[in-house]
């Protein structure tokens, strides 16, 4: 089958999925390396959301790596600043940040601080971190681009914990009211937030019904199933346009995905990994990836 929605040369569904899965594998690998340099970090989130980052940067986003501020680019807004570790890995995979620079993650004077900020990093559109901001900014970006006749799309990455913030729903209503068909939100539902499991901190389900009630085109997928993710992005793209329903892809993901040692560890917002475990994590990641692709 030939895809028409991909920005890449015609390829089969299978080869496309494999190409993006390879990107996700490298993003996970970079994430582990960055975590090891710091000895800590949001590695669990980077691994869990790696497939979402890969789908965006290796498949969806129209951008120019050599010119991150190209006016016609699609915008990817990272609302969850602490996911920067995964985002930096994706920026490296996309050729916007040199791979070797990832070693500076979280260090003094690095362009790659622990929490993503637009003023530090090329390709980082907004300063996230204070949760509930990203979608409000995305509404303005989508309005501004449409008003100026741009066909660029806006992607906003947010998390299920962030759905606690009322501003997210102000923006959800605003996007629908203004018919922002050029806006796609992607929510990482890892069912975990700072104080514990999402359903014990503040119940957000039924998540899909909430977005639908706000007037969005809603899809819910396994966010670690690349085939399902790409199909959802295709469906979102198919109904994207300057005016229409904004689109949300709800992605159920697994913290630590791809590294069984971490997948099975007690889930924590800030995952502790012992010094000797990093190499083991990388080996498990590679073994799992090679096992799947054999």
């Amino acid at each position: 089958m030939t895809l028409t929605t991909s920005i890449h040369s015609p390829e089969t569904t299978e080869s496309r999925r494999e190409r993006v899965e390879a990107a996700a594998y490298r993003i996970r690998h970079y994430g582990l390396n960055m975590g090891e340099v710091q000895g800590q970090g949001y590695v669990g989130q980077a691994l869990g959301a790696a497939d979402m980052f890969a789908a965006v940067y290796a498949d969806q986003l129209r951008h120019r790596p050599e010119d991150p501020e190209w006016e016609g680019r699609d915008r990817f807004l990272l609302s969850t600043g602490h996911y920067a570790i995964g985002h930096y890995a994706a920026l490296a995979e996309a050729g916007i940040v040199p791979v070797e620079e990832l070693d500076t993650y979280g260090s003094d004077d690095s362009r790659l601080p622990m929490s993503g900020m637009s003023t530090y990093t090329p390709g980082m559109e907004i300063s996230g971190g204070s949760l509930g901001h990203g979608l409000t900014i995305a509404v303005g970006t989508a309005l501004g681009l449409r008003y100026q006749g741009s066909e660029a799309r806006v992607f906003n990455f947010l998390s299920d914990g962030e759905l606690d913030e009322g501003s997210t729903w102000e923006a959800a209503m605003g996007a629908s009211h203004h018919q922002l068909g050029n806006l796609t939100a992607m929510v990482d539902i890892n069912a975990l937030q700072a104080d514990g499991k999402t359903d014990s901190v503040l119940r957000t389900e039924p998540v899909a019904d909430k977005w639908a009630a706000c007037g969005w085109f809603v899809q819910r997928v396994d966010g670690n199933d690349m085939g399902a993710l790409l199909a959802a992005f295709d469906a979102a793209a198919a109904q994207a346009g300057p005016e229409g329903k904004p689109s949300v892809i709800l992605c159920d993901t697994k913290v630590g995905r791809g590294v069984p040692l971490l997948e099975n560890r007690e889930k924590a917002h800030f995952m502790r990994i012992e010094e000797h475990e990093w190499q083991l994590c990388r080996e498990q990641l590679t073994a799992g990836y090679e096992g799947e692709t054999k």
């Binding site: 559109e125 303005g140 501004g144 100026q148 605003g174």
Partner: peptide, 27 residues
């Protein structure tokens, strides 16, 4: 066509204004 009503939602108002400024507009 240059006026945008954000509703009674001040957080959206300021976030959206920032998003517009990022696209080169002067809100």
């Amino acid at each position: 066509e240059r006026f945008f009503q954000m509703g009674m939602a001040e957080q959206l108002l300021f976030g959206a204004a920032a998003g517009m400024a990022q696209t080169g507009l002067v809100p």
